[in-house]
Design a protein around this nucleic acid. Sequence first.
DNA 1: AATGTAAATGTAATTATGTTGCATTTATAA
DNA 2: TTATAAATGCAACATAATTACATTTACATT
Lengths: 149, 149
Amino acid sequence: MAQTKNFRFEELLDKHHLKKTGARLRVLSMMYSKNTATSQPDLESVMSDIDRVTLYRILNVFEEKGIIHKVFDLNGTANYAVCHADCGENHHHDEHLHFNCTNCKNVYCLDDLHMPRLNLPEGFKADSFTLYASGLCPKCSKKNASSIN
Amino acid sequence: MAQTKNFRFEELLDKHHLKKTGARLRVLSMMYSKNTATSQPDLESVMSDIDRVTLYRILNVFEEKGIIHKVFDLNGTANYAVCHADCGENHHHDEHLHFNCTNCKNVYCLDDLHMPRLNLPEGFKADSFTLYASGLCPKCSKKNASSIN
DNA sequence: AATGTAAATGTAATTATGTTGCATTTATAA
DNA sequence: TTATAAATGCAACATAATTACATTTACATT
């Protein structure tokens, strides 16, 4: 039930020495309730009573603490998603596939799909990889199959 | 020599039925002279005599025609690079590695490094992939090795 | 329970980024 | 040479993000 879930988020904030404010809890519960990333514009319109600047600051600390990670979609728009992997303070393990649906514009973080090792040209020293793909997500590819608009 | 190179760019514009204007030729010669992508802010400051709007429009037609492609760096900033592969009108083959150096901020398009095939979860239908990596480029990793700042 | 304080939020202003409409100029085909 | 479609410049607008500072609030400590 709702209390249990909220308690979980309060614990999370505690763990990172962040104060448990209404705005932060709402952002957390929104992001954890979806299996897709949340775009900055979306977040703003849903949480329109919270000041834009406050939202930016919440997103920034959450990112610093390793609670969420930022990913840019095909249009360069910032999207935020919860980190499922072992992301720590200023240390993101964001090495999964970001799938951008060209129809519904949703960004999916496919965590189970890990990066294959590949050898870079001489001299390049990579410390992180991210893979992007675009196309149709399950919902939209099903929709298109039945009725080609 | 310069004339020969310029002729090459004029040919390119001709091929795509674009008028040979000074601004376009300058953008082309700048982008072709580098092995890294050019950020939108960089382009603006170098070509400060050309109107911002004109630059946006030049970049857009070049992208539509498949002459250049757009890539967002780690900060979500737009970067543009010439297409070496077989990009056609509204049809980009951008499936190579984009390496973002965390030190000099340069974005390298490593064309020779192609995407490994990978199987997506049920339902996802991808039509394009892009791989991002961040770390140190050859120049910066050499620099860091000699003098750790 | 009251309260002091650092942390968090709100407000206003500023900068960067990108777009649109329209007037003017220019490359080029005829 | 000239007509004209394309390209550019200019002004205004829209959105995204940051900074400085005033106000409020969570919460540790008494």
